[in-house]
Each structure stands twice: as C-alpha cells, then as structure tokens.
Design a protein around this nucleic acid. Structure first.
Lengths: 205, 205, 205, 205
DNA sequence: TATGAATGAGCGTTCATTCAT
DNA sequence: AATGAATGAACGCTCATTCAT
C-alpha cells in the first residue's frame, strides 16, 4: 500500500470512530489528527474541508455496503431466480452478513446519523443505496406475490421498511445504549425478528 | 400565563424547531434568540447554559410523553384489566395518539437524537420513559402469555422493540426524508404494520 | 457619541494605522485588536470579515474625500462660475487642503494601495471619487479652453493626471520613504509643482 | 543555458507575474510552483525563503534597470557631454525605452510596490537605482542651469520627481486599472507630458 | 536532484457566555 | 427584567517550510 493510502486509511478510521461516538459537529479535527497520529494539516490536504472528510466517509460506507454487505450479494439472490424464498433472504442476511455489519457498524452509524442533516449526502445515499435495493426488492416481491406467498394487503415499501428496521433494531439499540456487540445474542434476536416477520408478511398456509 | 412562562415557551419552541432540523451542536443560541424574538442573553438567564436548554427540552418531552402521549393512557390499558387485548393496544395508539405524535414530532426527534450523545439525558429517558413502559408491558404480556395468545418463542423485549420501531418507522422515515406528514397516509401505514405484527407475534389460532 | 460608535472609531483608527504601514495582507486582526484595545471578536461582530473592515475603511476614505478634502469644495470652484482660474484651483488645494490631506494620509494611502488588488473597491473609488471629479474638471476645462487659456494640444485627462500625480508626489514620496511630514516643506514643494504645471499647461501669453 | 538557470527563470517569471497581480503577501508559493510547472520544494532549495525569492526579483529588477532600461544609457547621455539637452533626454526615454518598460512593467511594479514594506529592499533600490540616477541628474542639471536654460526657482529634486512621475503615470494608470498596454497611445501621452514639462521647467525663451 | 508527503505555527472566524446599564 | 456590548477560548483552515526517498 502506498504511503498516502496508508495515511488516508488512518485518518478515515480515526474520523469514523470519533464521529460515531460524538457526532460530526462535536468532533474536532484536532482530535482526529491525534487519534490518527498525523498532523491536522494533512486532513485538509487530502479532504479540503471537514465536510469533505465526512463525504469521504459516507462514500466509503456506500462502497462497503455495495461491495460487501447488502447490495450485491442480496441482489444476486433477489434477482437470480424465482425459487429463492423470503426465508432464504433472511437467512442470507442473518447468517452471512452479521459479522460485516458489526465490523462496520461505526461507519454505518455515521452514514445513517449524518444523512439527516446533510441534504447532499442524503441524496447520495438514496441514489446509491436505498433506491437500488428497493428496485431489486420490488422485482423479487413481484415473483413472491405471483406465487401467492405474500399477504396482498401489504405494500412492498412497508414490508421492506419492517425488514430493515426490524433487523437493524438489535444493532441500533446497542449503538444508542452504548452496549457491547455480542454476536451470538444479536443472531438470536434477529432470528426472533425473522420469525415475527415471516409469519406476519406471508399468507397463512 | 405569566410573562416569563410566555417567553420560556417561545424559547423552547424555537429551540426545538431548529435543533430538530440541524442538531444540537449545529444550532447556535443566536439563531434561537432570533427565531424566538428575544435577546440571546435571557436564554442564559433562564437556562444557565446551552446544555441546560437541551435538558429542559428533553424534560418537556418526557413530560409530554408521560402526560399526553404514551405512558399514562397506555399504562391505564396495560394495567387495568386482563381482558385488554394486544389488538386494543395497537388501536389505541394508532387511533388516539397519532395526532399527538405528529404535533410533537420535532420534540420527540430532538429527544431521541440527542440521547445518543448525552449520557445524563439517556439515563433520564431510560428511567422516566423506557423502563416504566417496559415494566407495565411485561405485566401486560404475562397476562397475554398466560392466556396462550403469544408465541412463546419470542422475548418480551423483542416484541416491544418491534412494536415501537414498526410504529415509529412511518414517522421516522418522514422526518429523515423531510417529507410532509399526511395523517391519513400514516394511519394507513400503521395499520399495515399492526397487521404484520399481530400475525407475527400471536400464536396461530 | 454612542458606545458602539466610539468602539468602531477605535477599531478603524487602529486598522488604518497598521494597514497603512504594513499592507492589508500583512496586518493581523489580532494586532488591530491590541492597538485598538478591544477584543478581536468585536471586529468581526461589526465588520463580519477582515475584508469587510477594509471596505469600511475605503468607504470612510471616500466619505472624507467627498466631504472634506477634494470633491465638494473643489467642485464648488470648478462649477460655480467661469471666472475661476486654474491658478485659483491650485491655490485652493495647496492652501486649504494640505492639512486635511496630511491628517488623513494614512487613510488615503490604504485606499490607494489596496485599490490595486480589490476589483470591487476599485470600482467603488472610480464611481464615487475619480469619475465625479473628472466630470467636473472637464466642464471647468471647457470654460478655460474657450477663454483660450489652455494649450490645445493637451488632453484633459493628461492635464488632470499631471496635476494629481504632481501634487501627490510630495506626499507619496514621504509615505514610501517613511519620512516625516513637514507642512512648510510640502507646501514649498507644491508651489514649485504648481509653477511647473501652470507654465506647462497654459498657453504662452 | 543550464537546466538550473532555466528552472530559475521559470520560477522568477511565474513569481513576478503573480506577485504583480496580487501582491507579495497574497501570493502563495504553491501558486508560483504550479504556474512555473515545478515542485514547490525547489523554490526553497534555490531561494531558501519566500522573502529570498522576492529579494531575487528585486535584484533582477535592479539589474534590468541598470543594464537595459534607464540607468546606463541615460547615464551615458547625462554624463557624456554638455551639449545634450533636456529635450534629448526626454526623447531618448520615450523613443527608445518604452518597449523595455512595457516588457518589464510587472517586474518594475513588484519592485516599486514591495519597496514600501521592506526596509532592506528599499535601501537596496535607493542605493543601486535612485541615488546613482539622481547623482548623474544633478551633474547634468548643473550644466543646463549654467547655460541659463532652467527656471532657477525649481529644485533639482522636484524636477526629477515630476519627470519620473509624469512619464510613469501613463504606465501606472494602466497597471492599476488593469488596462491593456497600447504602445502608440502611451507614446502619444508621453509626448504630451514631455510638452508640459519642457515648457514648465525651462526658462521662457 | 527533485519531489510527494508531512507539519508547526499561526490566522481569521465563531460562539457560548458574561457584564454593565 | 431585559438587552446591547463585549469577550475568551477554541475551531477550521492555510501556508511557508522541512524531510525522506
């Protein structure tokens, strides 16, 4: 790895850690520099402004989400063939992706929190993350609905929102309450969430 | 109403509005003063510090929640008699409380957002809001479980968290996306959420 | 005088003094604050930015020039009646205005120096000072030319520029060389300049 | 030309161009490096400090003035023989030297402007440029005065200053106003200036 | 030699807070 | 009680300068 890339990585890691704990506005660039063990000045050499640093963080979060976490692998399931069931989608997320979510929870927290206050970042995330996932999800749901598996009274948007907020609530609670991330416990909770949602969303067989 | 109370109300309203939009740290006391149409100095006469103002806001949110929104009325249902069903709890929240939630959504957003970064406020909210509700909810669920109505594989905490995050997700989405609050539409969404949760949580009859 | 006006005057005086000595860019707002015996912060309360302070200085220079130094009194002579001669114009400037020029030489130096590097200020000075004087001067010269007093080979612009640069050169030299301003000596030099210009500009009688 | 000399020339040209436009303090070494198409670091290899670069510029200006523009050729006229008239001095400057002045006006502007704020540079210019010219000019004037050609009421210094400021005013105006340099027009103006000064300085014949 | 990377010192600016009236 | 005036402390950011390769 080049020297510059190494330094940028240090900066980004330090920034994500502190911003996720204190919020963007309460985080001073001097703190980031100290934690990253570099001089404050190169932060501005590389990212121009503090806001530029935040944008880089959100872009990295988008990239990670796209590459490693949700989008591409889930997309494969969602779009591949019709015989994938909602059950498999849940399992895929819960079994395969928890570790990645946990490893990047600070990054994701920063993205989700700051998106509230920065219109440009919100549009970026909507465009790069939310809308693509939603689009594939609709295609997938069309198949499931045609198979008669889904409660027809429910909108796609509500279903997706319930899945997302349900699965995330375990992580979110620990982030807000500043509690440790016990992978076994989180998986146990997510399986209960899955149980609720499967029964709630699918038609009674 | 006394002049002081009148002024305090103006300050609090202005503060809630701006902080809910920009976050606590990004909100300047000078902005609040301008919007409240008072001099910056009396903010500090009344609340000593900016943090004191935030504490007053959170206390007001707790009070509103306790008095008008969730706690006391729901408490009545939850604790009154055993023949109240989960169905009624949902309806009560959805039918009676939406307007109050909508009217106070900025206040609630400030509380929920800032609780992340201020330990003292977090403890206050846990102590005054979350734990009391949770305590009553456990009593209520004990009854429901004894009646054989609840899926025994699900923990109380998961169920409560799903209800809360599910019902709030409609409001939250609009807050984050800066969309208008259409009461009819929100009620429609909440009824779908109720449908999912009822089926998901209760035992198949 | 109000308290605010008093403070603004202190700031402006200090700023003019230091900027005239070191130039705008080399002058630190902290220095100005120390010399003015006020806190750095109110400079920005009153003038928003350092550039805003410079603009205030130039505006003050324009005002002083208009009110006290050149424009209005000279305008009176230039436009009043045709029987004012070039000789009287010179005398008026030399006799009556030297003290005012000397008293405000730092202010004028700042204006003339910084106008080079700030397009907005340049346009302001052209619009408020140079063009009005030039306009009146043309009217005056028309009369003098019609009386057959002026060398017809010379353009108005060249004549005015020679008068201005000639009369100012005594002051300018002392400013650049950081020499003391001896009023008697300056008046002596100006009278020589007048002698040169009168002979040079007017037709041989 | 050696590679180093080539690089130094690029740096100096870039520096003169930018400093003449924005002033020394407002000019960043990084800008100079970009315009000169070299790395910022070698500026400091060659000139040690930014001030060292400015000193090099002023020294180059002195050298150019001495070698090519004013000093040596004028010196030749001034000191060679007594039968050179003021008229010839003017013509020499106006006819032969305008192009050189125009080609180097940025260099000269930097020298004249920065001399105000740097005592060491001021002394250098006084010692190398102003005083030598003035010394020769006095000798020349002595001859002219002995021939009864010069108005005895005028001091040498005033006369020299009027010549310098008069001839330069055409260039100066265009520099300050950021106007194009039209050689024909400038020459026309200078001839008018010469006309004024000749009549003004010499005794009526 | 030449340069990309890095930095210390300092600047303009902000903002919660205090004080005199 | 209420405010205009003032400020200390810090923050984001800049830039001439150095260093390692």
């Amino acid at each position: 790895m080049g020297k510059r890339e190494e330094t940028e990585k240090q900066i980004l890691n330090a920034a994500v850690q502190i911003i996720s704990e204190k919020g963007y506005n309460a985080t001073k660039t001097s703190e980031i520099a100290i934690l990253a063990d570099i001089s404050e000045a190169i932060i501005f050499k590389y990212y121009k402004t503090k806001k530029g640093l935040l944008t880089a963080i959100v872009n990295k979060a988008i990239e990670v989400l796209g590459r490693e976490l949700a989008y591409k692998p889930i997309q494969r399931i969602l779009t591949s063939s019709a015989d994938k069931s909602l059950d498999e989608v849940f399992d895929m997320i819960i079994e395969d992706r928890i570790q990645l979510i946990l490893k990047n929870h600070a990054l994701l927290k920063v993205m989700l929190t700051e998106v509230q206050y920065h219109t440009d970042l919100r549009d970026l995330v909507l465009d790069q993350v939310v809308n693509p996932i939603f689009k594939d999800f609709r295609v997938f749901m069309k198949v499931q609905r045609d198979l008669g598996l889904i409660d027809p009274e429910l909108d796609d948007e509500i279903i997706l929102r319930m899945i997302a907020s349900g699965l995330f609530s375990s992580v979110l609670k620990r982030v807000i309450m500043n509690q440790p991330f016990d992978e076994v416990e989180i998986k146990r909770e997510m399986l209960q969430v899955k149980r609720i949602l499967m029964k709630g969303i699918m038609l009674n067989s």
